[in-house]
């Protein structure tokens, strides 16, 4: 079954309640997201999901030179950053988009849906 990465985007700077207006709103969103994850698991869509620490905690690494170079902060300096993600399996894009809409509602964030490579697309890539 095709796999999709569902990335949640939100403000790079986290406020007191992780970007939520209040503690109650944050807890409600966590509960809704938990219920959504349970649904994913029950219906065989769930591969992996987790939330991320704020983007300021990221370290960017370039290991292509003689010595690896470490830079404090995310690779792209943008106002909006990825805050968490799901890896799901879905029959097709329509199903993935419907799941992303439900996930977006639960976590109160905008979700980007991106397909993973498939065996066939990798083979096509390796063709001369």
């Amino acid at each position: 079954m095709p796999r999709y990465l569902l990335s949640v985007f939100g403000p790079a700077e986290h406020t007191e309640f992780s970007g939520y207006p209040s503690r109650e709103a944050m807890l409600q969103s966590f509960a809704d997201t938990g219920a959504f994850n349970d649904d994913l698991q029950r219906n065989g869509h769930f591969v992996f999901a987790d939330g991320l620490e704020p983007a300021v905690t990221a370290t960017t690494v370039d290991g292509q030179g003689d010595q690896p170079a470490f830079t404090d902060g995310p690779y792209l300096e943008t106002k909006e950053q990825i805050g968490g993600f799901w890896v799901i399996e879905a029959a097709d894009l329509d199903e993935a988009l419907a799941l992303a809409a439900a996930g977006s509602k639960a976590c109160r964030g905008t979700v980007e849906v991106r397909p993973f490579h498939t065996e066939e697309s990798i083979k096509a890539l390796l063709e001369p």
């Binding site: 095709p2 029959a91 097709d92 894009l93 329509d94 993935a96 849906v113 991106r114 397909p115 697309s121």
Partner: peptide, 15 residues
Amino acid sequence: IKAAHIPYRVPSAED
């Protein structure tokens, strides 16, 4: 269409 698996079908009655 190919990479994202956009389905080749008529949408369901509700959609």
